[in-house]
Design a protein around this nucleic acid. Structure first.
Lengths: 381, 381
DNA sequence: CTGTGATCAGACAACGTTGTCTCTGGCGCT
DNA sequence: AGCGCCAGAGACAACGTTGTCTGATCACAG
């Protein structure tokens, strides 16, 4: 800038005025300065600008994995909005490692971004206390943050799961298996709870032995699939591992009177009736047959993909709904019915929360739920 | 930092020494400073550090679309390597808009990153001249840059296409359709040229009417597909649009004398005997039968996906190979055979080029080709 | 002819660091 | 005892901007 000033024969400050489009520069001076700028290939140094003015023009975003289609889509939405506002985006991945979350988030914060969008992995984000204290707006996405004040954007997991369960039940399914992630994960907990509740609304007491929660590994999923698809009165003997350690709570009904429906189970399956479940359980009774599941709900895209890969080797093919849409999900046979999250909506909502918070930093923490959408493609009939 | 110094009762510079791990600080002083740092929640300001020291610790990356799986995978590889080196990554999308490429790239450059990784879209990157002149290392990925000195990482498009053509020809296909992107795109040109050359190696003179190059739109692809799959002597009447405007060059052969071999094709099936089809084009002649294609090569993931969507509505289903792997490509029926690019390899290669260039900025421009891999899954038998 | 704004331009300090230089004791050496 | 030397610590300037203040020039009205 000094060089430009010299070349144009003006003072430093005048160049500053020109590059900032500030008023108070005569047309002649302006032209001289502009010419000097292109001649010298001058580019303003944003670091210095930020240091002096405090305005960063930079957004930081920390997600589980930038190559995960879900987060990539959120990232795209954020980047689009940011670009419109003249901001650039720093992005980093945690790869589910709490330590790395901390490292990446703090590395970003050291660059003093205007805001931080974070998909929390760690149990607590209290390491961000100093930055939040200093006024850094934080938006948690996908999962809530803990230990700091942050706005939050979440998918409507409950609504999504309920729609899926409604769809399955509407197609006559009563014995529905559930493959979810390790319950240390917030979304995993929320979704499986929603699954139980959604079943209960139909007067079906969720069978805990049909609910498998674990970090998705091919081996674990193979075992769960084998048990869920082979299990039941007819096949129980063939699948010794079926429901180990989780014998209770099977085959419940809306009302105790229906307990008898649970009878007649000669197999090794648990028989204890469970009464009084369901939020608005119908007066009528919904008997729950035992046996291999006729339908399967997979609670995230990695589980779904792995299940799809393994299904051909299984004794039979259940109806299937996956949480998260997948590219090409419409091209497999049958088309995969999914609960699609609105990644773009999440990204945009995060940006909107930031907008309003920047306008008024003393707002209380807000939480936004972004609706999911059940995309019916045939795999869940 | 001033506050920390005051709190610890030392000079500014001593705090600086502590946070940088510089020697020359006594154990007692060090402890006092460290305590003051945590008490005050002090975090070094990287902007100021960069301004003073010139070290940015920041990488800039501009790609077509950060949500495109190919670029997302490159981004992940870059981010992994960068994180290892203590750098953070700014990332932005051009969405195929040359103006936006310029805007985003320059916005990044204003932050004075250590390097710029760019997937060029614009015809020329000469707008980056001042920064390159000032020593900014630029690596072009996916396509070469023009107008500036930049290292380049490209996929081995030629090898990939050749492997695909070899595979198809090896399975008896002689009439192979090609759906590529608009030839203004570098990779589109390189791939279609490779297609022609690969056919020629088998003694097949590429039939230009079977080569469709256009920006991928559902309508355009539908038209091309209809023509390619329904075309030929038997079906030509049914597809009036077949080869409009490109009447010539049909049924070419290695030698003019073989032109007659194109005649007499009653059925849609290839009948022409093919002699000595080897790698080195035989002296003998390879007649190319007309008729609907029996195989299709789709030259990027968007075209492939759209073709997969439309194939069910087409008169027959050709063998198919797509450029770029797709998530779930193994789950559709039949499994999709693809030419997979090594996105991770591209990202890593870019980082390696940067490493060596930072070590010696006066290196000449280098170009690296990353091998592709033909993943055979059944769609191209 | 002078006072009054308006317009344009420059001087200066400060943002939070770090590189360079200097200062101060205390130590071991001759 | 006098010397140099080193570790430890501080003073100061500079990185490239921008915000604030002040100064210069000019047209115009009183």
């Amino acid at each position: 800038m000094k060089d430009v000033a010299a070349q144009a024969g003006v003072a430093l400050k005048t160049v500053s005025r020109v590059v900032n489009g500030e008023p108070g520069v005569g047309p002649g001076t302006l032209a001289r300065v502009e010419q000097a700028i292109v001649e010298l290939g001058y580019r303003r140094n944003e670091s210095a600008r930020q240091l002096r003015s405090g305005r960063a023009g930079t957004l930081a975003m920390v997600v589980r994995d930038i190559a995960d289609p879900f987060f990539a889509a959120i990232g795209r939405a954020v980047e689009m909005t940011a670009h419109r506002d003249g901001q650039v985006v720093m992005i980093g991945s945690t790869h589910e490692d709490p330590k790395r979350e901390r490292e990446v988030a703090l590395a970003f914060c050291a660059r003093r971004p205007d805001a931080l969008i974070l998909a929390p992995i760690a149990d607590s984000q209290d390491y961000l206390h100093p930055e939040v204290e200093a006024g850094l707006p934080v938006v948690a996405i996908d999962r809530p943050a803990h230990g700091i004040l942050a706005d939050t954007v979440l998918s409507d997991n409950v609504g999504g799961i309920r729609a899926a369960v409604d769809h399955l039940v509407g197609h006559g399914h009563r014995v529905i298996g559930y493959l979810g992630d390790d319950p240390v994960v917030y979304t995993a907990r929320e979704r499986v709870d929603a699954f139980r509740a959604a079943l209960a609304r139909h007067g079906i007491v969720p069978d805990e032995s049909l609910i498998r929660l674990a970090a998705p590994t091919p081996e674990g999923i193979a075992r769960s699939l084998g048990e869920l698809l082979g299990a039941g009165p007819g096949a129980a003997g063939a699948v010794p591992g079926a429901g180990p350690g989780v014998p209770g709570a099977l085959h419940g009904t809306g009302h105790g009177s229906a307990a008898l429906s649970g009878a007649g189970l000669a197999s090794g399956e648990p028989t204890g009736p469970m009464s009084g479940a369901g939020t608005e359980a119908p007066a009528g009774v919904a008997p729950v047959p035992a046996g291999p599941v006729t339908a399967l709900l997979t609670a995230n895209n990695r589980i779904t993909a792995e299940v799809l890969r393994q299904l051909p080797g299984m004794p039979h093919r259940p109806a299937l709904i996956g949480f998260d849409d997948l590219e090409l999900a419409d091209l497999i046979t049958p088309g995969l019915t999914v609960i699609a999250q609105d990644a773009e909506g999440i990204g945009r909502a995060a940006m909107e929360l930031l907008d309003t918070r920047l306008a008024d930093p003393r707002l209380p923490a807000r939480e936004v739920r972004i609706p999911t959408r059940l995309i019916v493609r045939g795999s869940a009939e």
